[in-house]
Design a protein around this nucleic acid. Structure first.
Lengths: 150, 150
DNA sequence: TATTGTTATACTCTATAACTATA
DNA sequence: TATAGTTATAGAGTATAACAATA
């Protein structure tokens, strides 16, 4: 059997044992499938997609909580919300209880897009079936949860 | 037992089953430990670190191969190599066999830094011991390899 | 005084097109 | 004609400091 490329495989050396390196490498794959299943067709970036799905699952949320869940700084979140608001996907409502705060609310259009996005998740994940069994996929997600900051 | 924060946990909804989301979340943890163990003390970004370790493990390599291994476009790789060269960590040597191509070679200083970086890998990974057992860590890396593009 | 969110700004990262020199 | 690498440039992504409004 001849290997696919003429050039020999690179040795990873110390990288071999570095979790972050393998996370980054695996992310190349998932970013590519995301782009094709969600990014391009729905014109959404990863964070935008995650944000819409969080609102769909939880109802209105304060920017503060969204920022923490998505690891976004306050200024960057503001800009992100600006973009989504300009597209009429969300709106900001002043909180009644604490008038410094807002509730970020999905518009009808935003909810529709979020639902479409949620439906795209399954076929997107199906693309991994050639690389991982169902059990492996579940195990992988479980292990990633343990690594994740709380 | 009272939960650490007053606010209830967010529901992930459809994100729950999306591998890319969990990869991104776990990456927050590894990026943080990388920053403290390597990024700040050695003044290296993730790609720079990976590139040096690849050279350390494989000897001189052509930019073409580095770009493929690190998922970098040619122009971005050029800029990256410029920075490393300015710091006297690498040098570019014209290839004898194909004078369009280069060999990227670690300087003595670059090799030293790469070795220091390689030694930092172990304590860095040790930080994950509170989150993952050794077996889980190995399993996780194995699963990430399967996800990774080839 | 502390907190929520915004504005302004700069810096890094990534992507694309056009170019050169070699093959 | 094709390939390796570079240059120029623009667009996303991320980080920091200063600020306004409210608690």
């Amino acid at each position: 059997m001849i290997s696919r490329t003429e050039t020999p495989q690179l040795s990873l050396g110390a990288l071999e044992d570095i979790l972050g390196f393998h996370l980054a490498t695996a992310t190349v794959t998932t970013m590519d499938t995301f782009e094709r299943h969600v990014g391009t067709p729905l014109n959404l970036r990863k964070v935008e997609y995650s944000l819409l799905l969080l609102l769909l699952a939880n109802g209105p949320l304060a920017p503060k909580r969204l920022g923490r869940a998505l690891a976004l700084s306050a200024p960057n979140l503001t800009l992100l919300l600006d973009r989504l608001q300009q597209r009429d996907l969300i709106r900001r409502e002043r909180s009644e209880s604490d008038r410094r705060s807002h509730n970020i609310v999905l518009t009808d259009e935003g909810r529709q897009l979020a639902e479409t996005g949620a439906q795209a998740a399954d076929p997107m994940e199906r693309e991994l079936d050639s690389r991982l069994t169902r059990a492996e996929r579940l195990m992988l997600i479980e292990l990633l949860r343990k690594v994740a900051a709380r």
